[in-house]
Design a protein around this nucleic acid. Structure first.
Lengths: 348, 348
DNA sequence: GATGGCAATGTAATCGATTACATCGGCATG
DNA sequence: CATGCCGATGTAATCGATTACATTGCCATC
């Protein structure tokens, strides 16, 4: 136990060691590894044998310094603990690592000075590109990021009027579909459970909701727009607010700006003895895994999470390698309304 | 729109530029930045001004090459999409980034060759340390990792007989508590919903379950050990298996080796018209956020996820900086049994 | 047989920061 | 006044890989 860990790492083999062992020059070793076809069959085998024997692996810092690339991209994510982003991340990781890129994750949930540190990293040439999974990067950091002229791609949150590629779903349209679904079922008193007002996604989803309601000729009741911030807890709050209303004036359906709030709300409604969907139909947004586990299963807009990540990553790779922006700057992936058990027509 | 992104990054300022502008040598610039107290007040201000004016940020690859450190640690995680690990990651991230370390995440969910690539990265000196969140690293890669003599710390899964520090909870003990809770409530026919047989956590939890049952003088019914693999889907399967039994021979309580399975199982039980906890008490394991959202809320063992991550990270930092292993190699953090609504005494 | 071309390999400059060692000037001490 | 020390700064070696350019030798061509 507690066997002392070797404190001094054995001096790793360097390219010169390999060269010496193989009886060639360092250039030949480097070439053998980078473009095997340019060296003789014979030297190639000798060099590769030497590589094996020495256990050589190239020092990446040295290479990076020389070629001025890092093969690393920085991914700024609002909150890794959020399962939604976790899945987007997987898509990113798959694509990126298939092309030999590593990714370093900047988790923005946390003290803001961390954010600054990550931006520094990028500026210091520690990343060849940046993937933004959220619209709100700190103002000052944001400037620095642009000034660094590092290839940049955003995903998930669409920021209007930006010049870098953005991969998102059409939130306005999707929200309109969701609301429309409730309307088609026959609901006319429909509530909306909001995300944080300043959030772009929230704004777009509310807009979609408004459009659908307006199209149906329903007046939007300001009292039915409930405040929230995308968390389970505010979903619970929303449920309480609903229950506080006189039964007559309660909505028969509700559209939540994300799934977590929808689930919190349903829980509260159930606790009060009312049933979803009979007494209240609920539609969510995002399509987190849990939406399919909860009771009742949640009708929701499912975003192609992995695909969003994968596409954004592919876009970034293109940008990093060709250096030019893609033809279409705003890439929209299809989202789908998945019908489950949390919606039904209103009671007669 | 599609404003062409600047293809050639403006040549970033280097230390020599700053030195020239400030009218000092590169050494002085470097010293000013690293140890401000050793230079004159006067030069310091001149240098800092020059740094600002040139927008200089040190090139990290060059620094790494020189000082043979990267200030990056590699975190091997079985599956980032799993919310449990996501929270552990947050703890890691907080601690690591507070000490100026970056982290690169090796997501092992995916093609095994990715794993090899990550190991290469470490061997190539791209990381100063490794944090393992799972016991099962590929055999061959495992060897390479040890051979690289890179500081290593494991968390979450305890691997008996290893020489590197491990930060975990006592799974056997915790599982025993969970089972004990059911026994104390008066249950005598208790089922166990397993994880994958080869998984160490599963083995430890099953062992804890067995101990509790044995202590209570209850015979372990092999038919009540249901197969599973930690996924929601196998939880559902487990539920079906239970329902397939004659009502008389059904257990009155069940301990699931993790929360996701417990939730899947409850869903199935409910769908069949039985109620949790009245007809079946259920205890889970892990304490994922969702365990507190579901209906009924889940009695479970909650692991100190953030703390596991933070402690492991702190341990790794110590190992990387002092180079010596800590006094205690096996660090156990306390887990707690949280009582919620999914358990109650059996019906008379 | 001289010449040009080409394929294979070697030599050395280079990337940008850190830091051991050298230098310089000033001041205190004997 | 010479000596030595110290604090501030400069000079240049160094980290390890890549690659432009140089070199070598061989073969084909005239």
């Amino acid at each position: 136990m507690a066997k002392r860990i070797r404190q001094i790492r054995p001096k790793a083999a360097k390219i010169a060691d390999v060269a010496q062992l193989a009886g060639v020059s360092v250039a030949t070793v480097s070439r053998t590894l980078a473009r095997p076809e340019v060296v003789t069959e014979e030297t190639r085998t000798r060099v590769l044998a030497a590589v094996r024997d020495t256990g050589y692996t190239p020092n990446i810092s040295a290479r990076n310094l020389r070629v001025r690339k890092t093969m690393v991209v920085l991914v700024a994510v609002p909150d890794i603990a959020n399962p939604f982003f976790a899945e987007v991340l997987q898509g990113i990781d798959d694509t990126l690592s298939a092309s030999g890129y590593g990714l370093i994750i900047a988790n923005l949930a946390g003290p803001p000075e961390k954010e600054a540190r990550y931006v520094d990293l990028v500026c210091a040439g520690q990343a060849d590109g940046v993937l933004l999974l959220c619209g709100h990067v700190m103002r000052s950091a944001d400037r620095d990021l642009r000034d660094a002229h590092v290839p940049l791609v955003a995903a998930c949150e669409h920021i209007p009027g930006e010049s870098f590629p953005q991969v998102t779903i059409d939130n306005v349209f999707a929200a309109r579909c969701a609301a429309r679904h409730l309307i088609d079922l026959g609901h006319t008193r429909i509530a909306y459970l909001s995300g944080p007002k300043s959030n772009i996604l929230e704004q777009q989803r509310l807009e979609g909701f408004r459009q659908a309601v307006r199209e149906a000729g329903i007046a939007v009741d300001a009292g039915l727009i409930l405040p929230g911030d995308f968390t389970f807890a505010t979903g619970v709050e929303g449920g309480r607010a609903l229950l506080a209303r006189a039964p007559k004036s309660r909505p028969t359906a509700l559209f939540a700006a994300n799934d977590e709030m929808a689930i919190g709300l349903i829980k509260t409604i159930h606790a009060a003895g009312l049933r979803v969907p009979k007494d209240l139909s609920v539609v969510g947004f995002d399509g987190i895994a849990y939406a399919d586990y909860c009771e009742p299963t949640l009708t929701t807009i499912v975003q192609p999470r992995r695909d969003l990540g994968a596409t954004a990553a592919a876009e970034l790779i293109a940008l990093m390698t060709t250096g030019k922006a893609p033809a279409r700057n705003e890439i929209r992936l299809p989202a789908s309304l998945v019908l489950r058990d949390s919606t039904c027509p209103p009671r007669a």
